[in-house]
Design a protein around this nucleic acid. Structure first.
Length: 166
DNA sequence: CCAATTCACGTGAAGACATG
DNA sequence: CATGTCTTCACGTGAATTGG
């Protein structure tokens, strides 16, 4: 029978900790296990390709995840690194395309038309390549005012928000 | 310094597999 | 099929580390 709340209240901090410890440790193990399970789901196809019909242990899942990441990293490297400017341009173009499309459909006010016109101008180059920006492609071009940036961001949150820094 | 968190280890249960 | 061995897993707990 579990100790009542009142009984727990009467325990010393050390005794409380002793009772709490297994629960906390269990939660921690659960976190580990659920993450391993997620890894397994994410890499299911890889597993099927490399080890069909074999039972998957946790160690196998972790090993496969490591080798998969190594492999995909090597693949990206082999594909040739994009220059910072190219990366920036692609990100900018994509967001611009989304913004223009939206404003074309919804633009009515004078401000919106000005914003649309502003976006159609050629994008400004990114900052000097020597200093890598925190999130290439995510930062607005210098030509954009804070208000315009906010407006565009608000209007296109779902699309442009998909960008991930990795 | 101390409480909270994380790590590392030993233990037992459960299931898979081999052998007679 | 019974049973002995091995492997994997979850669990609890002491030790070590971290953060306020």
């Amino acid at each position: 029978m579990a100790p009542s709340t009142v009984a727990v209240e009467l325990l010393s901090p050390k005794e409380k900790n002793r009772l709490r410890k297994p629960v906390v440790e269990k939660m921690r193990r659960d976190r580990i296990n659920s993450s391993i399970e997620q890894l397994k789901l994410l890499l299911e196809q890889e597993f099927a390709r490399h080890q069909p019909n074999s039972k998957l242990e946790k160690a196998d899942i972790l090993e496969m995840a490591v080798s998969y990441l190594k492999h995909s990293k090597a693949f990206v490297a082999a594909a040739g690194p994009k220059s910072l400017h190219q990366d920036y341009s692609e990100g900018y173009s994509w967001c611009l395309q989304e913004a223009v499309q939206f404003l074309t459909l919804h633009a009515a006010s004078d401000t919106q038309m000005k914003l649309l016109y502003h976006f159609q101008r050629p994008p400004a180059a990114p900052a000097a390549p020597a200093k890598e920006p925190k999130a290439p492609g995510a930062a607005p071009p210098p030509a954009l005012s804070a208000k315009a940036t906010a407006a565009a961001a608000a209007a296109h949150q779902p699309a442009c928000g998909l960008w991930r820094p990795w």
